[in-house]
């Protein structure tokens, strides 16, 4: 145990650099996936056939490709087409795109759960599609969307470790590097696990808060 604390004092500062990148990747891809997911979802419920089809196709393609392959594609293949991204940019874009499919399905479920009467009431006071979405549907859908959204955040935090495969020195990769150079696997990976857990717990509490709020309604 004493040895563990000794190792901890030594490794935590290095691991914290990884924590920082983990947070950057998670927050970046969370924002991107939210925006893209909302766009896919709105296309899906737009009632315009070509947009509905396009969004459904996109979501299925994205869902059908493993995140790691998507990351490899963006980081290693895109340069062949003249788009060279830094590892961090590629990680954020890759995870953002990968998760946009799940975000879209969550948003769509929330939007479709809103009573049709609400939409009709909005229409009868002269609201168009976008105004109805913005003023009537989305504010109500948020309550339904938030609990699963929180779960997606937790999954993203953990899946940000996949960025290590394209050389982003986030927490998991930082741990692996330390472990392979010091052979202190137990200490290092225990610390890494504890750090992920520490970051997850506030999110888990947040999800519980959202759920309680949604249930009270």
């Amino acid at each position: 145990m004493q040895k563990f604390f000794h190792d901890a004092v030594e490794f935590v500062p290095i691991l914290l650099q990884g924590v920082w990148l983990t947070i950057v990747v998670t927050v970046g891809s969370l924002l991107l996936s939210t925006v893209l997911g909302l766009v896919w979802a709105l296309m899906r419920v737009s009632g315009i056939r070509i947009l509905v089809w396009l969004s459904a196709a996109l979501i299925n393609v994205i869902r059908g490709i493993p995140i790691i392959v998507l990351l490899f594609y963006i980081y290693f293949v895109m340069p062949d087409f003249g788009i060279a991204l830094s590892a961090l940019q590629a990680a954020i874009i890759g995870l953002g795109i990968a998760y946009s499919a799940y975000q879209a399905e969550n948003f769509r479920a929330g939007i479709e759960a809103i009573d049709k009467g609400q939409i009709e009431a909005a229409q009868t006071i002269g609201m168009g599609w976008w105004l109805t979405m913005r003023r009537v549907v989305l504010p109500q859908a948020v309550r339904i969307i938030l609990p699963p959204y929180g779960n997606i955040m937790i999954m993203m935090l953990k899946d940000s470790s996949q960025a290590s495969t394209i050389t982003v020195a986030e927490l998991a990769l930082q741990g692996k590097l330390i472990a392979s150079s010091t052979f202190k696997n137990t200490s290092v990976f225990t610390l890494v696990a504890l750090m992920y857990l520490t970051m997850s717990i506030p999110l888990i509490l947040l999800v519980r808060h959202f759920e309680n709020k949604a249930n009270r309604k």
Binding site: G117, Q118, A121, A122, T124, I125, G126
Partner: peptide, 20 residues
């Protein structure tokens, strides 16, 4: 249709007020 709807309002059986 938007102009027509602003001239002819509707009241529903189930009220359809915006709960939020």
């Amino acid at each position: 249709i938007v102009a027509i709807r602003t001239q002819v309002s509707m009241v529903f059986q189930r009220f359809n007020l915006f709960p939020h």
